Simulated assay, not measured.
Amino acid sequence: MADGTGATGALTGGGEPEASDSLRTFGEVVKGFRKRAGLTQEEFAPRVRYSLPTVASIEQGRRFPPADFVERAEEVLDAFGILRAAARRLSRQPGLASWFRQWARLESEAVSLQTYECRLIPGLLQTEAYARKLFVDQLPPLDDDQIEAQWMARAERQRLLRERPNTAFSFILEEQLFLRRTGGTEVTRELIEHVLELAELRNVEIQVMPMVRESHAGLHGPMRLLETPDNRWFGYCEGQESGQFMSNPKVVSTLQMRYARMRSQALSLDDSLGLLQRMRGAA
């Protein structure tokens, strides 16, 4: 599954504890401070503005705690900064495959991020309905907890688009990704609406590569590029059950040349939005 999700996404390598171990520990800490404050889960949930099932899942170590949950819980429970410190140690996120975590960490700090995709809509642009359809169709099948963990990890990553307004995001998407109608007509229409909405952000550029293109620099497959705050560039390509992180300057330079060529081969920003608007009406 693209974007670093998959059946192995909740596991760590190198003999380290499974991700759920650290999550369970965090959940127990939250529960301890909640009980110290004399609050039941039913009383605590509305104070942190999360549903009771979500609070229960976090305390059970089944969900990765969103950043705003941590902040609200810290204030509501007067936890002396302990919850913030504990959350920073949750480096093993369920829903993110081990091979993707290094890229996800750099992605969260990047000043520029470029993505070309020909298989499916990139995770940063997906709607919940579209993403869940991908998770449900995954083989071998995932259970409900795995699907929930994958969606939570993806939703956390999507916050980058709005929370990092100084990061430049560029996406080149094949037209066929929308024509496939993954999940059906309504899911596709919602997806196109969502992509058009994100394209209105000043830091997000979306281009569509048309179905008919005699010359195409992206025939080697999907790719991602990012620039770090110290202006270093890295690349990433993902296969069926693995991902390749690239730091060799010559390799990264090759990917940059291909991406630059694709930007000139894809439809312009205005033409891409016009095509998506027409596809939305036809969906």
Rank of each mutant, 00 (worst) to 15 (best):
P229Y: 08
R180P: 00
P222S: 12
G184C: 09
R132N: 10
Q102C: 06
R105G: 08
L125T: 06
L219K: 07
Q146A: 15
N166I: 04
M223W: 02
C118N: 00
Y116M: 04
R157V: 11
A217Q: 12
F178Q: 00
P165I: 08
L226V: 07
E128A: 10
C118P: 00
F169N: 05
G123E: 03
Y236T: 05
G239T: 07
A149N: 06
R105H: 13
F234S: 06
R213Y: 02
D143R: 03
E156C: 12
R119E: 10
Q158A: 08
T185V: 15
Q102D: 14
E107W: 03
P141T: 09
L201R: 13
M211Y: 00
G235Q: 09
Q138A: 14
G221K: 09
L125M: 11
P222N: 10
Q138M: 14
I206C: 03
T182E: 06
A131I: 11
Q138D: 13
R132A: 03
W233V: 09
E163H: 13
F169L: 04
F135L: 15
L226I: 05
E156F: 10
G183I: 03
P165E: 04
L139Q: 15
T167I: 03
I147D: 01
E174D: 13
F100Y: 15
G183H: 04
Q150K: 05
E148L: 13
A131Y: 09
C118G: 00
E175C: 00
P140I: 02
E190S: 11
D137R: 12
V204D: 03
L191K: 02
E109V: 02
Q240P: 08
F171L: 07
L225W: 02
A149Y: 01
E174M: 01
K133S: 11
Q240V: 14
E109F: 03
S170K: 12
L177E: 00
S170C: 11
M209H: 04
C118R: 00
L177A: 04
R159A: 15
R132E: 12
A149S: 12
H216F: 10
D143F: 06
E214K: 09
A217Y: 10
V136F: 11
R105M: 11
W99N: 03
Q150G: 12
Q240D: 13
D143M: 06
E193Q: 15
L177Q: 03
E174N: 03
S112H: 09
E148S: 15
F100S: 07
L160D: 03
W233T: 09
E227C: 11
I206H: 01
R202F: 05
A104M: 07
A199M: 09
L125V: 10
F135M: 15
G183A: 05
E148R: 15
R157D: 08
N166E: 15
P165G: 08
E117N: 00
V208W: 02
P165D: 06
S170N: 11
R180V: 00
R189N: 01
L160G: 01
M209T: 04
Q240E: 13
E163F: 10
L219P: 01
Y130H: 12
F234M: 11
P141H: 06
E156N: 14
A199C: 08
L120W: 05
T188C: 04
P141N: 05
I121G: 01
D230E: 14
